[in-house]
Design a protein around this nucleic acid. Structure first.
Length: 434
RNA sequence: GUGGCUGUAGCUCAGCCCGGUUAGAGCGCCAGGUUGUGAUCCUGGAUGUCGGGGGUUCAAGUCCCCUCAGCCACCCCA
């Protein structure tokens, strides 16, 4: 009859969210740093923007899309403002552009969480993270090529090989509008040949029918008019220039006239990167396009824009599937073992860190054996041992852990310099040892 | 929002079909193996509201119902 007090139900991360712990988080850091370097060298600067906005920022630009219609993670705050967690990166960037009016071309990148209220599954979460860039105020098709090349090079440089680039052109806003009318009419005439689920979309979102995965629909629309056959001369010239540019960079691509991306605002070039290492369901690892009307719809001046977003979780999933970009175990250079009460470890660790040496140590006065195990696990190249003998003689024992060199004693006042010198050598040789 | 599968130690899982003594394994963790030395080896140890709630029963990890969560698929997307 033990009366243990009822323990509260332990908390868990909310549905569709997840913690990223070391060592996996080391990969995240490395991936983001790699991305930052790549786009930084192309003149993109970091934009930090709020992860929530007035809901209109997102609603205005995606009224016809599921991302906005049913997946928005929205709420009312204590001031009764209707806000939404950012479902994707582009709208926030466009809003910041309208608000601050930087001098175009404005090239920014971000690494930020995105939120969608939907049921999680493989490669899909309520909070996921995107790496992205946006470039506003420039309509040059060579910028399209630059943007696509960056994402291509990003995937290639982290080791991904089974990635396919698919491109399409939505034409100008007028082209798009005219095509929507034409395709609606064409589909309407064959509506009984479509899968019922797709037939429902014909009236409001006819283009969505084009990228249906339902076999009945796919069979029914093989001869549907293609937007690439309905481009105005300007749009066609733009699209051709993009293709020439990609070819000149040696980037293979496939034109997919039925590629219709999930957001309403795209014009001209749209593109997706598909991983063939992932199962079909969530195989899109990145995508983007040009959105020449977006800034205007947010109250800004007519401004061209283009960008991409790529999901970090999916990219890392793809890395796992291809066996590339593994997590690197973080390690310290030095691990201090102190069996004399801890004051030496306490003070020496601070001294060494101030000298730029990475140091960890054991706490709680554990046994030497236990501390040595911790030193081994820490990945440190050297253990610094301070026992009663060392303390009495004012020295420390320097024990290499990664090779079979013998351990040495070093004067307490010389150890910081000794280690700093030792660790600055690429590969320590016997002559470097004291 | 709809459907399928799964929830047992920190992790991976066995046990459930055919209810029955103190619920197991491996890994990990902790400690010891001549009281100062890791990664191997040996020995020992700790940790479980058996996801939660209700029901059936003399008895439930095991059977039934509800619920929550995870995974997966649809939808859609990164």
């Amino acid at each position: 009859m033990s009366e243990s007090p009822a323990r509260p139900e332990p908390f868990k991360a909310p549905v569709g969210t997840h913690d990223v712990l070391p060592p996996e988080s080391e990969r995240w850091q490395a991936l983001i740093a790699h991305f930052a370097g790549l786009v930084g060298r192309a003149g993109f600067g970091l934009l930090q923007s709020p992860m929530f906005e007035e809901i209109g920022v997102f609603a205005r630009v995606g009224e016809g899309t599921d991302v906005v219609r049913k997946e928005m993670y929205d709420f009312h705050d204590k001031g009764d403002r209707h806000l939404a967690l950012r479902p994707e990166g582009t709208a926030s960037v466009a809003r910041a552009f309208v608000q601050h009016r930087p001098t175009p071309p404005w090239k920014v990148w971000y690494a930020a969480p995105s939120f969608r209220y939907e049921r999680p599954q493989a490669g899909r979460f309520r909070q996921h993270h995107q790496l992205g860039v946006e470039a506003l105020g420039c309509a040059d098709p060579d910028l399209d090529v630059e943007i696509i090349s960056l994402l291509w090079d990003f995937y290639a440089s982290i080791g991904l090989r089974k990635v396919e680039l698919v491109i399409n052109s939505m034409g100008t806003t007028e082209d798009r509008r005219a095509y929507i009318g034409a395709i609606r009419e064409w589909l309407h005439a064959r509506i009984d040949q479509l899968d019922p689920a797709d037939a429902e979309k014909v009236a409001d979102h006819p283009m969505r029918v084009l990228d249906s995965k339902r076999p009945i629909t796919i069979a029914a629309i093989v001869d549907a008019p293609r937007i690439t056959d309905h481009l105005s001369p300007d749009a066609l010239a733009h699209f051709v220039r993009v293709q020439e540019g990609l070819a000149a960079q040696g980037i293979p691509f496939r034109i997919e006239p039925r590629l219709v991306r999930g957001l309403d605002y795209y014009t001209h070039t749209t593109f997706e990167f598909i991983s063939h290492a992932l199962d079909a369901a969530q195989s899109t690892i990145g995508g983007g396009g040009r959105y020449d009307g977006l800034v205007e719809s947010l109250g800004g001046p007519p401004t061209a824009g283009i960008g991409f977003g790529s999901g970090i979780e999916r990219v890392l999933l793809t890395c796992d599937a291809e066996g590339v970009f593994p997590a690197a175990q973080s390690r310290v250079d030095v691990y201090i073992i102190d069996t004399t009460g801890g004051a030496s470890a306490r003070d020496l660790s601070v001294e060494l860190r101030r000298a730029g040496v990475s140091v960890d140590r054991a706490f709680d006065g554990r046994s030497m054996k236990s501390q040595m195990k911790s030193a081994d696990r820490s990945g440190a190249a050297y253990a610094l041992i301070i026992g009663s003998d060392e303390l009495a003689s004012d020295v420390v024992t320097l024990r290499p852990l990664r090779d079979h060199q013998p351990q040495h004693t070093v004067g307490r006042d010389a150890i910081v310099d000794t280690l700093a010198r030792l660790l600055s050598e690429p590969t320590p040789t016997p002559e470097d040892l004291p």
